[in-house]
Design a protein around this nucleic acid. Structure first.
Length: 377
DNA sequence: AATACGGGGTG
DNA sequence: CACCCAGTATT
């Protein structure tokens, strides 16, 4: 590939010099020029998928403390992994993490494979993560492309193609400037540059080691790149959710289906999440149907404030109703459980449900209710 | 090729 | 409130 950069090694050399002086110390990162533990690299890369460094740090430390090796993680109960993952989002990652650990332990004797090809075959590892692990943990000259690198390369070459359609062209450009040596440091350097220098809005080009190679900078239209297809509008959904508390102060919860949204996580029972785009109503009769289904009829019910939450592809409004349960026929199982709020830190409680708990705590303080998980704020 | 899949930070 | 983030799996 011929580009406007006459000597491609000058580009990567500038990036690596910048990294040697500016590399951030991160819990999973080795010193520049050294290679980190593949288990640490893998764990951090899975957590970092679509997730910021700030958010990941504490989770990474917690996981490593709880499961110091891939063997420990492979032999942990899935529910423990989901519990530890609670709040991080994209829970399929946690399920695949567990599956991947088991594969590495049973098929590879606890040692991660070092080739992109073999890494790609593992659950939860796609093109980006395979390249990142190969480069960062195994010194392979892989072409690593994440959102940051996509943005930098788009700007440096003033890529006219819209993404993700133009990703093949982008890959060629990225490959043309990726070094054979220190590919791991190079990738991490670009990612640091992406978050600190070549930012989506307000890039600080005066701090950029490759500004002199950057065509968009020359034109002064950095923020016009990368060009992306417009997003679709998110529909609005609504449902009623119940906080049913018994005499012991325990609350009725159920486990969601293994697959799909919030798969395998715990929730407060709710009616269907109906699309209310275009109108603004939530059939009150559905609450009665839910209470009948659970055998909780004729109990006093109090509504608290509406909980709003936005997922990747829709907005959700949840209307909690609080009820005191004197007596019931619900048998605890893996599906239905009575859980005291003081135990919420020990279950797989997604943030949406933590928000529900927080509202109830704030507005129904008279109920015996100790504390909600830290992440609720 | 398009869609499903969380949650938090930012302007 | 829209956009972005160390993307992957499924359809």
């Amino acid at each position: 590939m011929t580009t406007h950069i006459s000597d491609n090694s000058e580009f990567s050399a500038s990036v690596l010099r910048w990294y040697d002086e500016n590399a951030r110390a991160l819990p999973w990162r080795s010193l520049p020029g050294e290679y980190a533990d593949p288990y640490h690299v893998w764990l951090s890369e899975i957590m970092l998928q679509q997730t910021t460094v700030v958010t990941v740090s504490s989770y990474f430390k917690k996981f490593l403390e709880k499961w110091p090796s891939v063997e420990n993680l492979a032999n942990a109960p899935l529910d423990d992994v989901l519990t530890a993952w609670a709040g991080l989002g994209y829970y399929a990652r946690a399920r695949n993490l567990h599956k991947c650990a088991a594969t590495v332990w049973h098929k590879y004797g606890g040692e991660f494979p070092n080739s992109e090809k073999e890494l790609m075959e593992l659950p939860g590892i796609g093109p980006y993560t395979a390249a990142a692990i190969a480069a960062i943990a195994f010194a392979e000259p892989a072409v690593v492309i994440d959102g940051n690198i996509e943005r930098i390369i788009s700007r440096v070459f003033r890529l006219q193609e819209f993404l993700p359609k133009g990703r093949e062209v982008l890959r060629d450009y990225a490959a043309s400037v990726t070094p054979k040596l220190r590919a791991g440091d190079y990738a991490q350097a670009l990612m640091d540059m992406g978050s600190n220098v070549c930012r989506p809005k307000g890039p600080t080009c005066e701090l950029c080691p490759v500004a002199r190679f950057c065509m968009a900078h020359a034109e002064g239209d950095e923020t016009s790149f990368p060009k992306k297809a417009p997003k679709k509008i998110k529909p609005v959904k609504m449902a009623t959710v119940i906080w049913a508390e018994n005499a012991k102060g325990e609350v009725l919860m159920r486990r969601r289906a293994e697959k799909g949204l919030l798969g395998g996580m715990m929730e407060f029972p709710s009616t269907q999440w109906d699309d209310i785009s275009g109108f603004d109503d939530n059939g009150p009769e559905k609450l009665q149907a839910l209470l009948i289904e659970l055998g909780l009829i004729d109990q006093p019910v109090n509504a608290v404030s509406l909980v709003k939450h936005t997922f990747t592809h829709f907005h959700l409004k949840l209307q909690p109703h609080v009820l005191a349960v004197e007596d019931n026929d619900i048998t605890p199982s893996n599906h239905f459980l009575w859980i005291h709020p003081s135990k919420f830190g020990e279950i797989a409680l997604p943030t949406l449900m933590a928000k529900v708990a927080k509202i109830v705590k704030a507005e129904q303080g008279a109920l015996p209710f100790s504390q909600v998980r830290d992440l609720v704020r």
